[in-house]
Design a protein around this nucleic acid. Structure first.
Lengths: 110, 110
DNA sequence: GCGAAATGCAACCCCAAGGTTGCATTTCCT
DNA sequence: AGGAAATGCAACCTTGGGGTTGCATTTCGC
């Protein structure tokens, strides 16, 4: 189930995938329901091929999975990976703030 | 305190900032303790100017703050913003999975 | 006072990534 | 059967971002 030891590479890849507005448009569109690349292309201001590429990177990091429906390929958003990375990030942030608090505590104890 | 209504722009900016390995190197280095750009340049395989740019974008999204110490500018990691965005992402992921579960439930009820 | 260290700014290089057009192929539907 | 729709693949264009070098400026320490 777990893909490997260090999640760091995953984190960077995930953030990289989420660092594009068009990709977010696609994701939110898919949040309304599964859709094919062509269908998405009709409701977004970019080419079908561009969307196909984006769906590729989204699938790569596990944000999306594909479902064959007849001749078309439907895409579906998956939240599991996102939540996993998110929790990891939260932990890191909390850790940083914890360090900060410790320093401040020491400073005040003088 | 709050910077605005929609966090979306913030989320993209944050992800964009976290989508670079060098930036993570800087962040983890700063996790060991505050440091100046020059100091970081000594322990990382990139130029001081490159690091300065990175620190700029990190500061822009609130991952880092600066502390003047004599003639040098120390940088310090802040976890608050990161945690905030992380929780938002987690919520989004959970939402997606919730939708998924609902669909699966409907499918099984037939 | 003066050299050395820290910073700021600007011009420049290079490549990955987002986007497009074009074409070939498959597959559904009437 | 045959046309329309969906997909895949490839070549190509262009911009932004990561990185560097070079120089000017400030400021600490001796």
């Amino acid at each position: 189930m777990n893909t490997g030891p260090s999640l760091d590479a995953t984190v960077v890849a995930m953030c990289s995938a989420l660092a594009d507005e068009t990709r977010w448009s696609i994701l939110t569109a898919l949040g309304q329901g599964d859709a094919s690349a062509s269908a998405l292309a009709r409701s977004l201001p970019v080419t079908r091929q561009a969307i196909a590429k984006h769906l590729g990177v989204l699938q790569e990091v596990g944000l999306v999975e594909t479902v064959q429906v007849g001749r078309e390929v439907r895409y579906r958003v998956i939240g599991t990976e996102l939540s996993a990375v998110a929790r990891r990030l939260d932990a890191i942030g909390t850790e940083w703030d914890r360090r900060l608090a410790a320093i401040k505590h020491i400073a005040e104890s003088i």
